Simulated assay, not measured.
Amino acid sequence: MMNINVLRLDHRKKRDARITTHVCLTSRAFGASKTYLSGEEDQKLMKNVEDVVERWGGDFQVEYKKSYMNLIEEWQNNGGEVIHLTMYGSQVQDVIEEIRESPKDKLIVVGGSRVPTKIYKKSDYNVSVTKQPHSEVASLAVFQHMLMDGSEFDLEFDNAVFEVIPTAEGKQVNIHEENKTDDE
């Protein structure tokens, strides 16, 4: 399985807490192993995401990086590739197969406020998920879905306390008592 990480640029605590949380949860649910946050450090947000992982399983991590450019350069120096999601890039349907077939670790970059030109220049791919402005969460979900070729629907999250059982009506949740911690 490919190693997928996500970098959320320019997080602002007061303005972006909800959307950045959704970036983290989406990246996790769709198969990423880690989300890096840049911008303002937000321990509360990171703790909230870690709490979700404790309850819903897996080994997903969230980490703050003061310098996103250092992370990008380190990623590429270690043989990984950087995919920047933007409405100004190559259309996802035209490049997804090439990206999927590459054995390189993936760092998917999603913006916050205005994305600096250096991100466009440094990225291995600038990928457009539609040519219209919309949410970075939507772009991330569509891109990861296409990258995973739908296999994210079958992901298993080890050590989950809660597990949703899909049903046509109602809500069914298995509770795995053996995975509960003393805090729950």
Rank of each mutant, 00 (worst) to 15 (best):
V23I: 15
E54H: 14
E156A: 01
I4N: 09
Q93P: 00
Q172G: 01
F60V: 00
I19Q: 14
I165A: 11
E156Q: 11
V92I: 09
D149W: 02
E136N: 13
V129I: 08
Y120N: 01
I119C: 04
S128F: 08
S67I: 04
N179K: 08
Q91M: 03
L85G: 07
L25H: 14
Y68Q: 01
L71Q: 12
V161T: 06
E169N: 15
A29D: 15
K13W: 05
R114K: 13
N5H: 05
C24Y: 09
Y68W: 07
N78R: 15
L155Y: 02
A168S: 15
R12I: 06
D124W: 04
M87E: 12
R55C: 00
I19K: 11
V92W: 06
D124R: 03
S38E: 06
E152R: 04
F143Y: 13
V6T: 10
Q93W: 02
E74M: 04
I175F: 06
S139L: 08
N3L: 01
I119N: 08
W56H: 12
A32E: 11
F157D: 00
R100M: 07
L25C: 05
G111A: 11
Q132Y: 11
Y125W: 14
V52S: 15
E73V: 04
K106V: 00
V115G: 09
W56C: 11
S38K: 10
M2T: 03
I119D: 03
P103T: 05
K118N: 11
Q93L: 00
Y64S: 13
V23W: 11
L85C: 08
K180C: 13
H145R: 08
G170S: 12
V137E: 12
D59A: 02
Y68H: 03
V173F: 09
R15A: 14
K171S: 08
Q144L: 15
G39W: 12
M87N: 13
I108F: 07
E98F: 07
N159R: 13
N77H: 13
N126E: 02
E50F: 02
D158G: 06
